[in-house]
Computed example of a mutant assay.
Amino acid sequence: MTTRLLLLTPARTASLRRAVFDDGDPLDEGGAARARAAAGRLVRPEAVVGSGSVRCAQTARLLGLGDLRAVPELAGLDAGRWRGRAVDEVGAAEPEALGRWLADPEAAAPGGESVADVCARVGRWLRALADEEAGRVTAVVEPDVVRAAAVHATGAPLSAFWRLDVEPLTVTELSGRAGRWNLRVGRPLAAVTAEER
């Protein structure tokens, strides 16, 4: 059986607009309106899982997917003490640490985690999901999780992580069978819903 996984990124928040390390804020008005406008267009999956963030949970509800089940392996990248701070602010105060974190996949954010950590835990989850033959699964996840899943699915080096741009309220599709994943990247939600009707 083929497992079809839709990785859906949440709608925008004020932090995202200001380039702030995620601080758990809710969707802004524009993000909520876009999610509501797309409600009811996705085929109901067998399971709805995702990151435990406020914006992922809100996006799932506004899209009509109901309450998602938070999966620890699908949490967004932990920025440690940088959480809630603007990227520019961190770059001005700790340029070496930020530069190292962005350039070296093994370097962790202070008190947080590295790209390698995120890729490893998302990879473990994908391997377990493939073994389950789960059918159709929708995961509302942070962009970091989409990047990690793409790196895992393609076998790309960890250095590719920051080279993948992931927009809000888009779908990245993985289909898996026998331990192998195929990747379809970044289709707008409207394109996915039109094909599934």
Rank of each mutant, 00 (worst) to 15 (best):
T3L: 11
L5T: 02
L7W: 03
L8N: 14
A11D: 13
L16K: 04
R17W: 01
G24T: 09
G30V: 08
G30W: 09
R36Y: 04
R36N: 00
A38L: 15
L42H: 07
L42R: 15
V48M: 14
V48A: 14
G50N: 08
T59D: 07
R61H: 06
R69V: 15
V71K: 07
P72A: 14
E73D: 06
L74A: 02
R83G: 07
E89Q: 15
V90S: 02
G91N: 08
A93C: 00
P95E: 15
A97H: 02
G99P: 06
L102K: 08
L102C: 10
A103P: 14
D104H: 04
A108P: 06
S114C: 06
A116M: 01
A116W: 06
A120H: 08
G123T: 04
R124V: 05
R124F: 01
R127T: 12
A128D: 15
D131V: 03
V137I: 03
V145S: 05
S159C: 04
P168M: 09
L169T: 04
T170Q: 07
L174Q: 12
L174E: 14
L174S: 11
G179T: 00
G179K: 01
L183W: 13
L183E: 11
G186Q: 10
R187F: 11
A194L: 13
